[in-house]
Write a protein that binds this DNA or RNA. Sequence first.
DNA 1: GTCTATATAACGATAGAC
DNA 2: GTCTATCGTTATATAGAC
Lengths: 195, 195
Amino acid sequence: MSSAAPLEVGRLGAVPRTAAQTRVITAALDLFGQHGVSGTSLQMIADAMGVTKAAVYHQFKTKEEIVIAVLEVDLMRLESALDAAEAEQGPRAREVLLTLVIDLAVQRRRIVSALQQDPVIIRLFARHKPFLALMDRLFAVLTDGESSAGVRVRAAMISAAIGGAVTHPLVMGLDDETLRTQMLHVTRQLFERPA
Amino acid sequence: MSSAAPLEVGRLGAVPRTAAQTRVITAALDLFGQHGVSGTSLQMIADAMGVTKAAVYHQFKTKEEIVIAVLEVDLMRLESALDAAEAEQGPRAREVLLTLVIDLAVQRRRIVSALQQDPVIIRLFARHKPFLALMDRLFAVLTDGESSAGVRVRAAMISAAIGGAVTHPLVMGLDDETLRTQMLHVTRQLFERPA
DNA sequence: GTCTATATAACGATAGAC
DNA sequence: GTCTATCGTTATATAGAC
């Protein structure tokens, strides 16, 4: 895991995947969530699939390509949420975004915090143009264009709260629907009474 | 990084450290924050200190011992904050806790999210009795003894928000004092108007 | 306390057979 | 698409000299 080539620019592309590639992505996703990217070896992915490392390398040339493929799945879901939010007017846009992002985070609770906090993924994102563009759009809706310290801190805390709470030990026993409803409620509190 | 022995029980002990050990802890702390525990090798720690791996192994027998030593530093700070909070009565306890925890998170912003989200550390914490006891005390103050779904979700989101916001790209440019003040303000909003 | 040197295992990655 | 076998590198960890 150490290269420096610039990745693709522009909108996220819907890369078509074979069935074998999808199996790799599914296994890797689960392991990244449990052990992080650095803590997950190609051998672990192969073992989880019941094949050898060589079979995994036949689907993806490098480990980094697997990481990118795993990210693309969730990044495209996030992009869809943003598309839907941006189609709304005024404060409705933010409301729609938060609802959809919380849905997404709860659905994908096993992987979300890894995606948001893993050092390898953070480094990858920093040179991944479509992701950076996505984050710009995300925070434009969240902050409504403002960029004062107060607004930035609020947006950062909400982003971290949504991504981090879904894997928190305190909520492990809660079902998806309860977690979703309660998170939406707490999140709204942060916007109802602005700085 | 793979053992399963139970760690010490009870209150956190103030382990005395030699100067050389402290140098290891400082270097490791910085690297864990940047690359995570799995992404940090003994060689990287040795290089950062300007010594060889053997010198590092003379201070700590295993990598896991280094991880534990790094954790102890911040866990004891957290314990102090908790001691101070528990000395207060009623709602003042929570107010004091949040203020001190936010101070701590901002001061230690380079390492906090690693400490809270790194998979190796999470696994280590799960069998570390003094840490589990500390978390119980922390959430007792945060939730004021309640344990409804609403209260749990709120506490989880606040915990994640504080730990995760301090390293968020949106607040990278903010100085510690601004970040601290704004975070405290947003956090208070979450408690002023309970479920 | 730090060094050189080494043991042993696992890592990412590839070649070539089936 | 998967296998066996292997390459070169790096990982954790140790022995013994200074």
